[in-house]
Design a protein around this nucleic acid. Sequence first.
DNA 1: TAAAAAACAAACCAATAGGTAGGTTTTATA
DNA 2: TATAAAACCTACCTATTGGTTTGTTTTTTA
Lengths: 216, 216
Amino acid sequence: MTQEIKRKLTRQSLIDKGYELINMYGYHAISIDRIINEVGLTKGAFYYHFENKHHFVEAIIQERIAKEIHSEFIEPINKHGNPLFIMEDLLQDKLIKDKSLAQSLGSPLTNFIVELSHEPNDYDLQIQLKEILDQWKVALINLLYRGIDEGYLNRHINTEPVAEFIINSLEGVRTLKRMANDKTIFYNYIEQFKNYMDTLKISQEDNGIKRYQLVS
Amino acid sequence: MTQEIKRKLTRQSLIDKGYELINMYGYHAISIDRIINEVGLTKGAFYYHFENKHHFVEAIIQERIAKEIHSEFIEPINKHGNPLFIMEDLLQDKLIKDKSLAQSLGSPLTNFIVELSHEPNDYDLQIQLKEILDQWKVALINLLYRGIDEGYLNRHINTEPVAEFIINSLEGVRTLKRMANDKTIFYNYIEQFKNYMDTLKISQEDNGIKRYQLVS
DNA sequence: TAAAAAACAAACCAATAGGTAGGTTTTATA
DNA sequence: TATAAAACCTACCTATTGGTTTGTTTTTTA
């Protein structure tokens, strides 16, 4: 096996196992010994690839968390169409259809934020986690603007607060899902999420087709 | 000083400092040595009051987290009136007016859930944290039912999903606030929260006073 | 094919972790 | 006021922590 491939393979196996364990049990709860044992490597290998534990988790954030948010929550909404349906489909996919084990582990993004965002030690990690959040927010804002342009959404909505509210509620429900075994909380969430999203729809006074009028 | 008071005082100082540090840095990141040093006690005192670290954090959950949720988010909504205004006032109090340091530390409840709810080791802690969440949810459901009875809210709303949605979004925004220094995210949240709560208002067809009719 | 660099393994290290044992001081009881 | 119990301190223990050093194997290069 060529050198470059071998290096990338071992490095990736460490990152994958580290991500899995740290997301499940937490950064301070997982030792390097634990990780290398489960992967079948030694300290020598680990510290050849990573300077220290801090740089290790930094790599996990960049190479797994950031990419997961992109592939799971940013790319799927980078398209045209009714934002209400696009978001609803996304939630159905990620919260209902997905049968993966990860469902009961909450949101990796929130998990890492809670454990790794206390200054001044983790200031750089905090910056990177915030950057991921910001990219997600921008993607949502763009989705909303397209929705306005294409006539699906009310043109008077404040896109940034709306985008933030979507992220807040979604990260919240994924985190609190850890307390419940059943998926009822996800179904309930989607139900209310749709109620909220309906407040963004284009109003009847705006679309110029139908008009409502108060009658006695 | 009487024996009983002395005991309770020491015990409380340990719990208070433990709560402060663990909420800030995390359960596994804070050692017992760190806690006893900051309160000026020794191992002997600590292990006289608590069997081990696990029972210690269990006491913190019961005697600080549970009580804080009660006094800050349950008791304030245990009253009559328009749920929309009651909730809005509460959020203003806790998110905007409150100048305490705790603002940048996220939600203690979520912090403890993320760090202490992975089975099978912490199963009992998970139960207790879920119990706190359930009590909060029940209080919200009761608030909503009163709102229906008193004519403020639509009688067709699903109270449990609504209560869950409120908790989800609130815990979410408090957690993600850790990434931002300014309070804009709180202002934006309250703005959108009100939009959502408006969907719960009594509909015009129900109140029997005003009626809207489609006209050409 | 030999040297050099890369990719690991093995053994080790100081510091810290949670926890224990036994003694000392403080308070309550008789 | 003597005794007992409660409240706390000191010193210590073992296991584990993140990290280092040195040696060995593998791959590349000249």
